[in-house]
Design a protein around this nucleic acid. Sequence first.
DNA 1: TCTGGGGTCCTAGGACCC
DNA 2: TCTGGGGTCCTAGGACCC
Length: 429
Amino acid sequence: MKKVFALVDCNNFYVSCERLFRPELNGKPVVVLTNNDGCIVARSNEAKALGIPMGEPFFKVKHVIAKHKVHVFSSNYALYGDLSHRVMDVLRQMEPDVEVYSIDEAFISLPVTKVWDRVKYAAELRERVRKQVGIPVSIGIATTKTLAKIANRVAKKEEQFNGVFDLAGNSQIDQVLAMTEVNDVWGIGRRSTEKLNSRGIYTALDLKTADETWIRKQLTVVGARTALELNGISCISLENAPPCPKSIITSRSFGHPVTDLYNLREAVINFVSIAGEKLRKLGVEADTLNIFITTGPFDEQASYSNNQTITLHQPTSSTPDLITAALQCLKSLYKPGYRYRKTGVMLAGIVKQGYRQQDLFSFLRPAEKEDKQLMTALDRINSKWGRSTIQYGMTTAEDKPWLMQQTRKSPAYTTNWQELPVAKATGLS
DNA sequence: TCTGGGGTCCTAGGACCC
DNA sequence: TCTGGGGTCCTAGGACCC
């Protein structure tokens, strides 16, 4: 059966998550920051109205924030991840085909019915999420994903639609596209916008009707696909069974610059441990490991960035194996005399556990089975008592300059017994 | 003083092979 | 004197997304 796409998008997701446990913040300006309290990553509508831009470094808007008493939160990914799962679960209760596109967005496919029925159904979906999870969402419906994105923008912006807008079979589709700036089209970023503008293409409608060979040449097949999608020709299908990832990255900027190898090692070991945990959680193994270190893009006097890759003999998800390789890379990368700001690990060559090719020399690793059991035990303990309960090669040094700075973090309301919100009965004797 | 983290896809160019 | 062509694979870098 022919289907249409619906995009369900949580409104100002991180802010909505924070407000869920602090309802007194409804109607007040709120922002959420990136790791290390670096940049603005989410804004309430009130904060948007104050002109605080998305992605702006925090220090640049500190004066606006102080002046208007904007509430500021460090990011609390444990909370957002948990609430995201709950939203997705509600969607799956109603629809079998759900593609979780990001932490706050999902595509679903709906049967082609009358527009009125679709809108009514979407409204019900929206109401269920609000009731069961408490997060407001907007829903855009159209015949392609790119158009569903645009429909969603309308649903979010125009209050009269109550959070649902249907573009499929809508006779005013070209009017909507004419009102949509081309840089707001999904897949058209800064660079493409420059090229398109130079050719007189400013709106989604301009792009829809633009010369195909020119688009193909300037924006590659990706841009050509976007143009087709604007024409209602679906090129991007629903992926409701995510394949195993091609790469897994764990990296963090440091809370304070690091100059010595000792602290870099500790940071690398920590990040590699997290990456190993991710592998095991997904039931996959990796055979390629890349370590990078950098002074960051803003240190103009003495900047240094480098990375090194090691290909392992066999795919593995064992943390000690990964650490050994990682420290080997780090040793050759490290140069004294720099103020390092960030390091990270990237794992690639990822295969499902058990799918790897039999290795001629496996008799050389009799410890492999014990290793697996150790990892299972470690993951179980850390998942029960918190990620840092058991760690590799970690010192008890009080000064860990690489640790993240997060001074405005809300409690882990839903994922930590110690931080559960407490309902206080008042007025009872 | 202070600027995130985690992904995907595409292309061009070099190495290498026959 | 005269020095090909076609294919594959890998990597780096760019662009984009949330």
